[in-house]
Computed example of a mutant assay.
Amino acid sequence: MTRRRYVRFEHLGRVRFGRVAPTVDDVTPVEVLSADPIRTDATPTGELLEMEEIRFLAPLLPGRVVTVHSAYADVPAESPRFTLGPPPASVDPQTTVPPPARYAAELAVVIGRDSHVFGYTCANALTTDSLALGPWIVTGIDPASLGIGSMVNGVRRQQSTTGLMPTPVPSLLTHITATTPLSPGDIVLTGTPAGSGDLTPGDWVTVFIEHMGTLGNKVSPTRSR
């Protein structure tokens, strides 16, 4: 399957969907799509935009969130523990969030139609009800052994590989969907490596996953009133 990167972005005051096209002459355009490709049969509109013309948003507005309660390198469990939560507040890439906040690098599985996997994106659960996602959703990638980690102010805090997940993604999804039907736009947070923790005002946090890019956010220097 061809690897693709799907984006949600703002252009001239409109929120639109697209996918990153191949680079030509050092220019990487975004191919505009007619609608949300996760939930509909989106088609190319024929319009191409340069990345400098757009502002990247969280690549989806999630439906429900399935949180898997396990840490990397845990002993494999026959029945992984998970909880189902309501849609979180989505945090866009490269934006500032108010304290208090935490960092926890996670691979997020994005569910498409018929409970099939649409793709994967970087995630960072900054608070109990807000979730940073992005910069895009990657399709056509094997999640079995990807480098994953986080950095705070340029200092590495987490470093691991998805190969150390206690339960691989396909088995996780089989276990979850046996009791919990999933809908397009739902996401599964698959756990985080050791080293997650609290952020302080002014911190810059970056989550990275191999072949999937980086997701950065800043914590505001002061609390919002």
Rank of each mutant, 00 (worst) to 15 (best):
P168R: 02
N153Q: 04
P135R: 01
G185P: 03
F118N: 10
L189R: 00
P193L: 07
L164V: 03
L189N: 06
G134M: 11
G140E: 04
R157V: 15
T192N: 05
V152P: 06
N124Q: 08
G119D: 08
S150P: 05
T190S: 04
W136K: 00
T121F: 04
Q159K: 10
A144F: 01
S160G: 11
D186F: 10
V188C: 07
G134W: 03
I111C: 01
A125R: 15
I111F: 04
W136Q: 03
W136E: 13
G134D: 12
T161N: 14
L126G: 02
S130K: 14
A178P: 05
G185L: 05
W136F: 14
S160I: 10
W136L: 02
T161S: 15
T179P: 00
T127K: 07
I141S: 03
S130R: 15
L126R: 01
D114Q: 13
L131W: 06
L133Q: 12
Q158R: 12
L164D: 14
Q159C: 13
T174Q: 14
A178S: 15
L173Y: 06
I111W: 06
L146H: 05
V155S: 13
Q158W: 10
Q159I: 14
L164F: 15
T121C: 14
L107S: 03
L164S: 01
I137L: 04
I137M: 09
G134V: 12
I176D: 12
T128H: 15
V138R: 11
P193E: 10
T121I: 05
G119V: 09
T162P: 08
D114G: 00
T192M: 02
S115H: 07
I148W: 01
S160F: 10
S160A: 15
G163H: 11
R113A: 06
L126W: 03
T179Q: 14
P135E: 06
M165E: 01
A144C: 12
P184I: 11
E106R: 01
A144G: 13
T162D: 04
L172V: 08
N124Y: 10
V110A: 00
A125W: 13
Q159G: 04
L131Q: 11
M165T: 02
A125Y: 08
Y120W: 07
M165L: 15
P166K: 02
D129Q: 14
H175F: 11
P184W: 05
A123H: 06
E106S: 06
W136A: 15
S150H: 08
G154A: 07
Y120M: 03
M165A: 09
T121D: 01
A132S: 13
L133G: 10
G191I: 02
S115F: 00
S150A: 15
L189F: 05
G149R: 14
G140N: 04
P143G: 06
A123D: 01
S150Q: 06
V188F: 09
P184S: 09
P170V: 03
A108R: 09
Q158L: 04
Q159M: 13
P143N: 11
G119P: 07
P170E: 09
